[in-house]
Amino acid sequence: MFALVVIVKLHRSKYSVPVKSTEKQLGSVVRKLRQAAGLTQEQLAQQLTAEGLPTKQNTVAKLENGLRPTSVTEFSALARLFNLSVAELSDAVFPRELDAEQIKAAEAERSEHWARIGELHILSEYLQDTMGAIRGELAERGMRAALLDTRLGDHESKSPIGGGPVRGAELDAQVAMLLRRYMRGEDGNAKHSEA
């Protein structure tokens, strides 16, 4: 009996497909995709549950660590959640040999994506700074307007936005107007200029 167990173990270790390395590779790819999407393991579990696959955070952790097998249905759902085709996810898990032309094209595409990501980060920081300045100015002017309203009492407001609360599209239009004024430097406090 002992010899049979040893032979079976030896046979499995030499000739079977390395399932654990496949699961670890899939887990590594899922972790990278999840992090790139800005999701937590809990959020990914919730999205899988919404896809009809009841999943908990610890299940995602096990998947990412290569500690559990993944069904075809789960694999397909993961591809959908990460906006990939099943073939694209499969290529990420089981990379194929690429010829020189494919490598060159992939490197060019990767460089293009990273360049655009850099541009978007710069734009995001600029917009955050600008919106922070606008919010500060709105708060300051709002306080001053409120003080003037108090001093003027019941007199009619001459504000371009009226005296009532501002909501929805009206607020968006006002913020856009103030942003354009700020960018043009109409209030004398502009810190940025349009390129």
Rank of each mutant, 00 (worst) to 15 (best):
F2V: 05
F2L: 06
A3I: 04
V6I: 09
K9D: 03
K9L: 09
L10V: 03
R12H: 07
R12L: 06
R12Y: 09
K14N: 07
K14W: 09
S16P: 05
V17C: 04
V17H: 08
K20I: 05
K20T: 05
L26Q: 09
L26N: 08
L26T: 07
G27D: 03
K32S: 07
L33E: 08
L33V: 02
L33G: 06
R34S: 01
G38K: 01
G38E: 00
Q41Y: 00
E42A: 14
E42K: 05
Q43N: 08
Q43S: 05
L44H: 12
L44I: 02
A45S: 15
Q46G: 10
A50F: 14
E51S: 14
E51R: 15
E51G: 10
G52K: 14
G52V: 01
T55V: 13
T55I: 12
K56H: 14
Q57I: 07
T59Y: 15
T59C: 10
A61M: 13
A61D: 09
A61K: 14
E64N: 08
N65Q: 08
L67H: 15
R68D: 07
P69M: 13
T70S: 14
S71N: 10
T73C: 11
T73M: 14
E74Y: 15
E74C: 13
F75M: 03
S76M: 11
A77M: 01
A77S: 12
L84G: 09
S85W: 12
V86S: 09
L89V: 05
S90R: 11
F94G: 02
P95G: 04
R96K: 04
R96P: 02
A100V: 06
A100L: 06
I103R: 09
A105P: 01
A105E: 09
A108S: 04
E109P: 05
S111V: 08
E112P: 00
E112V: 03
W114K: 05
G118M: 02
E119I: 02
L120W: 12
I122W: 08
L123N: 06
S124Q: 08
E125L: 02
L127I: 09
Q128W: 00
Q128D: 02
D129K: 02
D129A: 03
A133G: 03
I134H: 00
I134N: 01
R135A: 04
G136F: 01
E137F: 05
E140I: 11
R141N: 13
G142Q: 08
M143E: 10
R144Q: 12
A145Q: 11
A146H: 15
A146G: 11
L147M: 15
L152V: 15
G153I: 03
H155V: 13
H155G: 10
E156Q: 06
E156I: 14
S159K: 00
P160H: 01
I161E: 02
G162K: 00
G163L: 04
R167P: 00
A169T: 07
L171P: 00
A173T: 03
V175L: 13
V175T: 10
V175W: 01
A176D: 10
L178S: 06
R181V: 07
Y182D: 04
M183I: 07
G185K: 05
E186L: 06
E186R: 14
K191P: 00
K191Y: 01
H192A: 03
S193M: 07
S193H: 13
S193I: 08
E194C: 07
E194W: 14
E194P: 13
A195E: 15
